[in-house]
Design a binder for these strands. Structure first.
Lengths: 338, 338
DNA sequence: GGTCAGCACTCTACCGGGGAGAGTGCTAAT
DNA sequence: ATTAGCACTCTCCCCGGTAGAGTGCTGACC
């Protein structure tokens, strides 16, 4: 595309994302292209409309980017907006005072992301395909009930109440835990599976079985924590003035299974993904754009982080800040998770 | 108040909560009081309006209950609506398949409550004033970094990364954990405080100090988990058609500190509290009603459970179902928490 | 061929008037 | 105390007319 057309498309996107009002040739002329006439701009706009990048709400209105218009902008025209020092400091502070536990951390990440992008955010807890076990603990609850506590890499705690076939004193459980720790701690989950195969029948095998069950759930990600925040930010945008639009977005966010699907989209893809309007699989997200990236304490442990807003979103700002949050969060988790 | 006035007020509340349309004398006459004339009903309505229980959106519209009207209804006229067997079964199923950990449980409770009341829900994790310690564990992370894991009654896990002044091997930490368990497990938090006072300087005292810090945070409730769900249900109601109303509610729900204040209101009060419209401390909840109760595995461990909806809420249904959810959740937690 | 001024055209948003409908309060009779 | 009848009030909705914004097109200019 000729560079002037590109410049005009960029200007339309920029103008529309800030004003939310369809942009006309005069506005463009006075604010962006003082040495072009509005007639020339009009003919360029008409061309861009023919190419499918712009559309008009009605005949005598200004132009609005289409989903493909935004796509072209994002793919070819966007350059990341620098992040103000204040925002950078805010991100840093919020994440470095975040709680060390999984849930507190993920919630803080989502909160921070929503605040700095002024959109809705989602975050899923980091998760790896072959979990490493750091520590195992067994606590006697009732004669035949044991609480199994598992500490995984990333300092993730998992607990499960186990009904055992034979009773066990705390003293016995403590010895058993010591044995399990000697065998498993610092090892990956496959070691637990190996030991389970070769273990003789008895309490130890029983408990190893439950350890494996917990690891399975974790590795399949079926208990994966997903949080969202910042829906209130969306309500400031005119596209969510009628609450039916909010309703659709909230259905996606509050129904965790939808969200999980959404986040799975990222797996196996590049580290930054932008899904615009009709590109969304879910029909409820028409008119919305989703910007996704990954984060986590290490290469093997990754969660997904995303921003959800109207397609009329300040993409260059959103992407920059999303990446900054992802980086800060990853750093912080790496420092904690060891 | 004469019983006929009461009957009419009850009818107005019932009619308005189901139809959301101001109710007129004719509608009342044909649906509730066939052997009274509409003129008689009109004069009763006028009386009820004088008493402050009803109001009209405009001169020639039907009547709508005021906040005091709802208050009178709730205090004197409401009788709990029986819960259909299907709903009862749903509650039971959802809560009995809930995860055993704190966060999973609280989220499931909020989700269930939102589903059966068709309103927004909030739930805070149960919390006690004098925590009982079930188990302590110490895991070596780096030479001078220890992960402290604390299991409290209700099977609540708390973790904290502790920087120690002296390095310690895992073997030493394991022995230390055994000592701490012997001293603390089964005891309440004051025992930890006593031992801290009398402990000689050193790693043990250092760690005891962190145990106490964790207990403090827990007992002050400042890390108290609060979740909400079901905002999408509100959007089906006409009072939330303009999204500015949703915005106000979401600000309360997403700003956890507001929510914490809201839930604190219940402490020291009766086990069922209904806050209607202007009775709300927060101005953002004008037009909303909040119904609150407590739940938890034991008398000492209580969380707050609440329903948030428009003042035009089916109070008798909401209260009945809220209490049913609270009871089922409490039972389930008692069975798990031991 | 690109650029541009001028102009007719189109469509929305807004305003005010008028009629239908719902529901009231009042009055007078029972 | 209850009720039928009636005038009154207010909203909602439809309608037409207008101002304004922005377009597309045409013809001239470089």
């Amino acid at each position: 595309m000729e560079s002037r057309k590109q410049a005009i498309l960029r200007a339309v996107v920029h103008e529309f994302t800030t004003s939310a009002v369809p942009v006309g040739s005069q506005a463009l002329q006075s604010r962006y292209f003082v040495n072009l006439s509005s007639a020339t701009i009009r003919s360029e706009l008409a061309d861009l409309a023919d190419l499918g990048y712009l559309t008009q709400p009605h005949t005598s209105a200004g132009r609005v980017p289409t989903d493909s218009g935004y796509r072209y902008f994002v793919d070819f025209l966007m350059d990341l907006e620098p992040i103000p020092e204040r925002v950078r400091a805010y991100i840093h502070d919020e994440l470095n005072t975040a709680p060390a536990d999984e849930q507190g951390m993920v919630e803080r990440v989502a909160m921070t992301l929503a605040a700095v992008t002024q959109n809705a955010s989602v975050a899923s807890a980091p998760q790896g395909s072959l979990a490493r076990i750091k520590h195992v603990d067994l606590v006697s609850l009732e004669p035949k009930e044991v609480l199994l506590i598992l500490l995984l890499e990333g300092n993730l705690l998992r607990q499960q109440v186990v009904e055992t076939s034979e009773g066990a004193t705390q003293a016995l459980l403590t010895r058993l835990a010591a044995r399990l720790n000697a065998a498993l701690s610092g090892r990956a989950s496959d070691e637990a599976r190996r030991r389970y195969e070769s273990a003789p029948l008895g309490l130890e095998k029983e408990l190893l079985g439950r350890v494996i069950a917990v690891l399975d759930v974790y590795e399949k990600g079926s208990d994966n924590l997903v949080v969202h925040d910042g829906v209130r930010n969306l309500l400031r945008q005119p596209e969510f003035a009628e609450s039916s639009r909010v309703h659709q977005v909230l259905e996606v966010l509050e129904e965790t299974r939808y969200l999980t699907v959404l986040l799975r989209q990222l797996i196996g893809n590049s580290d930054l993904q932008i899904v615009i309007g009709s590109e969304n699989a879910s029909s409820q997200l028409q008119g919305c754009a989703v910007v996704l990236t990954t984060y986590g304490p290490s290469d093997r442990l990754k969660g997904v982080l995303g921003v959800i807003g109207p397609t009329r979103m300040a993409y260059s700002q959103t992407v920059a800040r999303l990446q900054a949050v992802a980086r800060s969060a990853s750093d912080r988790m790496a420092a904690l998770g060891v």
